[in-house]
Amino acid sequence: MSHNIQYRDYPENVDKDKVFSELSIYVQNECWQEGGHLNPIRWVPAPVCESIDAAQQYIETHDRGWYDCLAVRYREPIRGKESKAYLDLVKRRAKAADRYNKMYRELYAATVTAAFIGCKSCGSKLSREHLLTRTRSNQCPLCGADLRPASTLEKIQKARDSMEEINKKMEQEACRMAKTNGTVRWLVKIEFHT
Results as ranks from 00 to 15, higher is better:
residue 122 C to F: 05
residue 176 R to S: 15
residue 186 W to V: 02
residue 40 P to G: 08
residue 101 N to T: 09
residue 147 L to D: 03
residue 80 G to N: 14
residue 126 L to Y: 10
residue 40 P to Q: 05
residue 15 D to V: 00
residue 20 F to G: 01
residue 110 A to V: 00
residue 136 R to M: 11
residue 7 Y to I: 07
residue 104 Y to Q: 11
residue 81 K to N: 14
residue 17 D to N: 10
residue 110 A to Y: 03
residue 124 S to A: 15
residue 106 E to W: 05
residue 81 K to Y: 05
residue 128 R to H: 11
residue 9 D to V: 11
residue 145 A to H: 13
residue 172 Q to R: 14
residue 138 N to V: 01
residue 88 D to C: 08
residue 87 L to T: 06
residue 13 N to D: 07
residue 59 I to T: 10
residue 50 E to V: 06
residue 145 A to N: 14
residue 136 R to G: 06
residue 170 M to R: 15
residue 32 W to G: 04
residue 84 K to M: 10
residue 145 A to S: 15
residue 104 Y to R: 13
residue 105 R to Q: 08
residue 116 F to H: 14
residue 134 R to P: 07
residue 57 Q to I: 00
residue 83 S to F: 10
residue 85 A to T: 11
residue 61 T to S: 14
residue 6 Q to R: 07
residue 139 Q to I: 09
residue 61 T to N: 11
residue 70 L to T: 00
residue 139 Q to E: 12
residue 187 L to E: 01
residue 50 E to Q: 14
residue 93 R to F: 10
residue 171 E to V: 10
residue 194 T to C: 09
residue 44 V to F: 04
residue 86 Y to L: 14
residue 158 K to N: 05
residue 64 R to D: 07
residue 136 R to C: 08
residue 81 K to L: 14
residue 16 K to G: 00
residue 117 I to W: 09
residue 45 P to N: 03
residue 111 T to S: 15
residue 48 V to C: 04
residue 93 R to S: 05
residue 175 C to H: 05
residue 70 L to E: 02
residue 74 Y to I: 12
residue 70 L to K: 04
residue 23 L to Y: 03
residue 39 N to E: 02
residue 8 R to G: 01
residue 60 E to V: 12
residue 6 Q to W: 02
residue 63 D to W: 03
